[in-house]
Design a protein around this nucleic acid. Structure first.
Length: 204
DNA sequence: CCACGGATTGGCT
DNA sequence: GCCAATCCGTGGA
């Protein structure tokens, strides 16, 4: 199983493309976070695209602020924000410099470092086997399990702390598309992409 | 300085 | 299914 970690790291050219293309192509790829002694890894199974040019739900829509300036980098950086007084959410910055586009990682399927993820997320042992499905099935949950917080915002995905590995291309028929979740503006854009029937999705 | 709302989660009805 | 928790970022006075 750990041989998945020998896959090739995604490079700048992958991230600099248009945000909805990057979003769909991130499905099935492997998010990796290197800890002091071990690695955490999960397969990306649910994402959403945000584009500040015309998408009122994007943090970058109103222009650059101290919080969102990272979103205006060129593709290949991590943008993390804090919300509802409790949760972090992590995004992959995409496109060209000053564009303000990013992909929210909404759910992953845990692959490597499960014990550590369980510790990070619940601070206790699992109550039962089914609880594993609650480990990384939402944007705040992913960040908690991977110990991603504001100190990770702005990190380069070409570095060694956090990055994404390639994997074989998904069959188009396995990709689902829907409206985005939890927003109040630009609600009709069909910019949520997910791997159909994966048990770790945030919603069915 | 103050007010308001949020790219969520988990607990309770 | 409904709803409170919780606090920072943002914008206006």
């Amino acid at each position: 199983m750990n041989d998945i970690l020998s896959n090739k790291k995604l490079q700048k050219v992958f991230y600099k493309r248009e945000v909805t293309i990057v979003a769909q192509n991130l499905l099935g790829k492997i998010l990796v976070k290197n800890e002091k002694k071990s690695a955490l890894a999960g397969k990306i199974i649910e994402v959403e695209a945000y584009n500040g040019d015309f998408d009122e739900a994007a943090h970058s829509f109103k222009g650059k602020t101290k919080r969102t300036e990272i979103m205006f980098n060129e593709g290949g950086y991590l943008y993390v924000y804090f919300t509802y007084g409790a949760h972090f959410c992590c995004n992959v910055v995409t496109g060209k410099k000053e564009q303000g586009t990013a992909v929210l990682i909404r759910a992953v399927e845990p692959l490597v470092g499960l014990d550590k993820m369980i510790k990070n997320r619940f601070r206790r042992n699992l109550k039962n086997e089914k609880e594993i499905l609650n480990l990384t099935s939402g944007p705040g949950k992913v960040c908690k399990a991977f110990n991603i917080n504001l100190s990770c915002s702005g990190l380069s995905l070409l570095g060694d702390r956090i990055f994404i590995l390639d994997s074989k291309k998904l069959d188009e028929k396995d990709i689902g598309i829907s409206k985005r979740i939890g927003i109040t503006r630009s609600v009709d854009l069909p910019w949520r992409f997910f791997i159909k029937d994966n048990p770790f999705l945030s919603r069915k």
